[in-house]
C-alpha cells in the first residue's frame, strides 16, 4: 500500500512465486479424489474472493452478485456448447466477456449519479435475485431448478496424461495464480494501485485532482467480472452440472466475502489466505446443512465487528513486533 521500495517489491514477488509453487505442488501431498476436489474448489474461490476483494477493498464497490457473474458465464458457455455444439474454450471466453460487460454495466449504472456504496450493494443484490429467478424460471432453456449437464470439457493430452481430476485442479490453480499476479501488478506495481487507493479514500478529491472516478470503477469492474467469468465457466464444467444452487448468493457470495475480509480485502494474498482457511472450515461444517448458513452469518458479524483489517494487516503487525 504505502509506496514499497524496490527491495520490498522483490520480496513480494518471491513470496508470490513461492505461493504459486506450493499451490501447484499441493496434490503431491494431499493425494486422493476427495482432496483434489477440495483443492480445486479452493482455487476457484481464490479467484472469486480476489475479485470481490479488489472491487470492494480497492474501489469501494460492494458487489453482492459474484455468484451471478460467475453463473452468467457458466450458463452462457454451457448453453452454447450443449445447445449449439460450439467449441468449449471460445464459449468460455465469450461467457467471461459477457460477465465482464454485465459487471461494467452494473458499475456504470450505480455510478451515474454517485450514489455511493449502499446503492451498489442494493443494485447488485437485486441483480443476483434477477439472475437466480431468471435461470430458475426459464425452464425450457436452462432446465430450471435441476439445471443441465454441459458436455464435459475436452482436456486433450493433459487429461490423458494426468486424468480428469488432476487436470481440472491444474487449470484452476493456474487461474488462481494468474489472478494473484494480475492483482499484484494492479495493486502494487502499476500507477493504478495508487489511483484506486485515492478513489477509495476520497472520491470528490480524486475527481478534482484529475481522476475519472467512474472510469476507474467501471474498468476495475470489467476486469473483475472477466476473472469471475473465467472461473465461473470452468467451475460449471468442474461440477459437471450447471444449476441455480451452484450459483446462488449463499453458495458463492457469502464464502467469497468471508474469505476476502478474513484475509484482508484490498490485499493481494489476503483472499488466498482466506480461501485456504475457509475451504477447510467449510468442509468441516458442511454436515450441518442449512444451519451452516447461520454459522457464516455469525462469522460475518464477528469478523466485521472485531477483525476488519484482516489477516494480512494483522500478520504485518505481528512480524513488525517480532523483527
Amino acid at each position: 500500500m504505502a509506496a514499497p521500495d524496490e527491495h520490498r517489491i522483490d520480496v513480494r514477488l518471491l513470496v508470490l512465486a513461492a505461493i504459486s509453487a506450493i499451490l501447484l505442488a499441493l496434490p503431491l501431498v494431499f493425494t486422493g479424489r476427495y482432496y483434489l476436489r477440495v483443492l480445486t474448489q479452493m482455487s476457484f474461490f481464490i479467484v472469486f474472493a480476489s475479485a470481490f476483494g479488489l472491487l470492494f477493498g480497492r474501489t469501494n464497490q460492494l458487489f453482492l452478485c459474484i455468484a451471478a457473474l460467475a453463473g452468467i458465464s457458466a450458463y452462457t458457455s454451457g448453453l452454447l456448447t450443449s445447445r449449439l455444439g460450439m467449441e468449449h474454450w471460445s464459449t468460455i471466453l465469450l461467457g467471461s466477456i459477457f460477465s465482464a460487460g454485465v459487471a461494467a454495466g452494473l458499475s456504470y449504472v450505480a455510478n451515474v449519479r454517485r450514489m455511493g456504496v449502499v446503492f451498489v450493494a442494493i443494485l447488485t443484490l437485486a441483480f443476483q435475485l434477477i439472475f437466480e429467478n431468471l435461470v430458475t424460471g426459464l425452464v425450457w432453456l436452462t432446465g430450471g431448478d435441476t439445471g443441465f449437464r454441459p458436455p464435459p470439457l475436452p482436456l486433450g493430452p493433459l487429461g490423458s496424461l494426468l486424468g480428469e481430476q488432476m487436470s481440472f485442479y491444474l487449470i484452476a490453480a493456474v487461474l488462481a495464480i494468474g489472478t494473484l499476479f494480475v492483482n499484484y501488478w494492479l495493486m502494487e506495481r502499476s500507477k493504478w494501485g495508487l489511483i484506486m487507493e485515492a478513489v477509495r479514500n476520497e472520491e470528490v478529491a480524486s475527481e478534482v485532482i484529475g481522476i475519472n472516478v467512474r472510469r476507474v470503477k467501471v474498468t476495475v469492474s470489467a476486469l473483475s467480472g472477466f476473472m469471475i467469468g473465467l472461473a465461473g465457466a470452468l467451475y460449471g464444467y468442474f461440477n459437471g452440472l450447471i444449476s441455480p444452487i451452484y450459483f446462488s448468493f449463499a453458495s458463492i457470495d457469502i464464502l467469497s466475502q468471508v474469505m476476502a475480509v478474513f484475509g484482508g480485502r484490498g490485499t493481494v494474498i489476503g483472499p488466498l489466505i482466506g480461501s485456504a482457511v475457509f475451504t477447510y472450515v467449510n468442509e468441516n461444517i458442511r454436515y450441518l446443512g442449512p444451519i451452516s448458513l447461520s454459522v457464516y452469518g455469525a462469522l460475518i458479524v464477528v469478523l466485521f465487528a472485531a477483525f476488519r483489517e484482516g489477516m494480512v494487516a494483522t500478520l504485518r503487525r505481528w512480524t513488525r513486533l517480532v523483527f
Binding site: L62, V117, Q257, G289, Y296, I300, V301, A305
Partner: peptide
C-alpha cells in the same frame, strides 16, 4: 454504513439459516 451493512447481512444469514433449518 459499511460495518452496519455487514452486521445486518450477517444477521440475515444467521436468522435465515436458523428459520429454514
Amino acid at each position: 454504513i459499511l460495518l452496519g451493512l455487514f452486521l445486518m447481512l450477517g444477521l440475515y444469514l444467521l436468522l435465515h439459516g436458523y428459520f429454514t433449518n
